[in-house]
Nucleic acid binder design. Structure first.
Length: 616
RNA sequence: GCCGACAUAGCUCAGUUGGCCAGAGCGGCUGUUUUGUAAACAGCGGGUCGUGGGUUCGAAUCCCUCUGUCGGCUCCA
């Protein structure tokens, strides 16, 4: 988040206040929650009781806001003792503010997380005594707020109300739902327009749109929500990515395993997943036995069964399993969306079972693999050290946790990774190193993850025999490089706008016939055969259409290389490849022998480069 | 799961106070054209207006149910 003193932050904060003023004018009975600054603007949570704000009301609210801005009245800051502030909240019928103030008085801080605390942040975190809180008034509307605000209402930049949605009071789904009105705001009109344009650009890259346009995946009402099916083109992407991810780990001694997609629920009772995620498991009923089965929501418990299938010596460790497989999770319907959140998700999952003294090396290997993968797909990353917080949502002793968290931090520092730490983001069985990548539009997503786990080895009673003949518990390291392939694709498709590098392109070469003459068609087929022989993915377009039309179709599918076959090509046994613009290194492309062209593309695919190596 | 919006042909969309056999472009098919690097021309198909119910003389249009999608909230092993 922007620095509190940052001018843009102050502007956005002031606009939230002005919006509240406007809402209070239009709906005098409005009850206000919190109104913080967010990434590109601000929002305010309001409760209008029976009334509902819809996007149709934005014009009125904006008009009212502009009146407040036009009047350019000064923001007046004042302070009140906490009890007076509570009295103010009661008097003005602002129950939400009253609740926050009472919490402040009682606990010195609000119980709710970050944003709410920031909103009321006159008090330092952890303080026990609250003396006073500050208010801002813009002539008519007084709001509890730390500020700062701009001098007067006229000194705000360009803004636009964007959307309204439901939001639980204090982020708790047990609480009442308020309406959250979002606005975007920038210092100047130009910057605002630029931002709106960026959003338009993002829409064009939306993976759901490109998934259809590029024929990558489909959904069907008959199959169900959150259950994507991948077309031949999309399946190429999945397989190539998974193969790459696997090969990076096989280099470090990982071996593929396979486990079934259904299992008795006993397995997850043992692991602890049943207690925590039981209501999100798909149940499977056997008509033959009394077994209670579930679709597997993850794979680590299965992998522990393979590990435990024979006695292990300290010499055998690390044992490293790799499995790219689909898991099933019955996510809440409202949480599904495109490929980013699905009910059948494919993980490039792996688990290391090792001794304590092997943890460091193993983690280093995995961090190296993740770094290589994200360098190859050209995405910038930083890592988040995801720690536990002091809630009771975690298994295992506090000592184990702090040891594990320290080990992860040391590994990240040793690998010179750009990192930050965050409490409350850990898995219930252990802390994580999460890889956060930034896409072409500057948005951050979590992808790869490396997790240290002392809990499941304990729960499953895993062991190995050490040099002295004693039974010792191994450590588990969970790792997925792509994370969920579906989620990775959702990010990656938008990052590349569907312009996949040669190694991933579902179709690498399109061969266009100039006409339907027998020798031209025959030669095109011959080129296709030669390409396939080299393991390349190519297609012939022999439609009775203009060359221009066929080129256009290849462009729309973002095919990296397009070649036109006519008499000239037959005679010269050479081609002039048309290279997708983002890959080209020169403007005009020279003719090249067919043989050399195909071999070059083959090498590019093998080396997973982003740019062409063909010169002009 | 919660709040809100939406659902018309394969795709993108028009049809917005209820009223002639529901339209367009692209794609598809057929024919003509034989094309040299981002859209040749003509014709023909194609929709129980997401589902089920209701209101009405009459429903794509109004109401309810379900399914699905989208924007958020909550959650994310």
């Amino acid at each position: 988040m922007a620095d509190q003193s940052d001018q843009l932050h102050i502007v956005r904060h002031s606009l939230a206040h002005i919006m509240a003023t406007a809402v209070a004018r239009l709906w005098p009975e409005a009850k206000f929650g919190v109104g913080p600054v967010v990434e590109y603007g601000f929002y305010y949570d309001v409760d209008l009781g029976e009334a509902q704000i819809s996007e149709d009301d934005f014009k009125r609210i904006e008009a009212e806001m502009r009146k407040v801005i036009g009047s350019n009245v000064p923001f007046e800051r004042s302070e009140k003792p906490i009890d007076e502030a509570i009295a103010w909240a009661v008097e003005t019928s602002q129950p939400y503010k009253e609740e926050l103030l009472n919490d402040l008085k009682r606990a010195g801080t609000t119980v709710a997380k970050d944003l709410n605390a920031a909103e009321l942040g006159t008090i330092a975190e952890g303080a026990t005594q609250v003396q006073t809180v500050s208010f801002y008034k813009d002539g008519e509307f007084t709001d509890l707020c730390r500020g700062p605000h701009v001098e007067s209402t006229g000194k705000v930049g360009a803004f636009k109300l964007q959307r309204v949605s439901g939001a639980y009071w204090r982020g708790n789904d047990q609480n009442a739902q308020m309406q959250r009105i979002y606005g975007v705001a920038f210092a100047t009109k130009d910057e605002l327009n630029q931002h709106l344009q960026m959003l338009e650009e993002a829409k064009k890259r939306d993976h759901r749109k490109l998934g259809q346009e590029l024929d990558l995946f489909v959904f069907s009402d008959m199959v169900g929500s959150g259950l994507p099916m991948f077309t031949p083109r999309g399946t190429v992407l999945r397989d190539e990515l998974a193969d790459f991810s696997n090969s990076l780990r096989q280099r470090y001694g990982f071996e593929k395993v396979w486990t079934p997609h259904i299992t008795k629920k006993d397995l997850y009772e043992a692991s602890g997943h049943w207690a925590k995620f039981g209501d999100e498991l798909f149940l499977v009923k056997s008509q033959e036995t009394s077994d209670e089965l579930v679709m597997k929501p993850m794979n680590c418990p299965h992998h522990t069964r393979i590990y435990a299938s024979q006695p292990r010596s300290y010499r055998d460790l690390p044992v490293r399993y790799l499995e790219t497989t689909t898991d099933y999770r019955d996510e809440k319907t409202g949480e599904l969306g495109g490929l980013s959140r699905v009910r059948a998700l494919t993980q490039d999952d792996s688990h290391v079972f090792c001794r304590n003294d092997q943890i460091e090396t193993e983690i280093n290997n995995l961090l190296a693999a993740a770094s290589e993968l994200y360098a190859t797909v050209d995405m910038k990353l930083r890592v988040r050290l995801s720690y536990r917080d002091d809630s009771d949502a975690y298994l295992g002793s506090a000592e184990l946790w702090s040891t594990a968290q320290e080990q992860l931090k040391r590994a990240v520092i040793a690998n010179e990774l750009n990192y930050y730490e965050q409490a409350g983001e850990a898995a219930f069985y252990g802390p994580k190193i999460d890889f956060m990548v930034t896409d072409a539009l500057g948005r951050e997503h979590q992808v790869a993850t490396v997790q240290l786990d002392f809990v499941q080895p304990e729960r499953f009673g895993l062991e190995y025999t050490d040099q002295e003949g004693a039974k010792v518990q191994p450590v588990m390291i969970h790792c997925a490089l792509l994370g969920s392939i579906e989620r990775f694709l959702s990010v990656y498709i938008e990052h590349t706008a569907g312009r996949f590098p040669v190694w991933l392109a579902p179709e690498q070469i399109r061969i266009i016939t100039l006409n339907q003459q027998d020798d031209v068609v025959a030669y095109a087929e011959k080129v296709l055969g030669a390409a396939k022989k080299l393991g390349l993915r190519a297609k012939v377009d022999n439609a009775s259409e203009s060359v221009g039309k066929k080129i256009r179709n290849a462009e729309l599918l973002r095919v990296p290389y397009t070649i036109v076959i006519g008499q000239k090509e037959i005679d010269s046994e050479a081609v002039v490849p048309r290279i997708r613009k983002d890959m080209a290194v020169s403007e005009n492309q020279a003719a090249i022998s067919l043989d050399e062209f195909l071999k070059t593309v083959r090498n590019e695919a093998k080396s997973r480069v982003l740019k062409t190596s063909l010169q002009g």
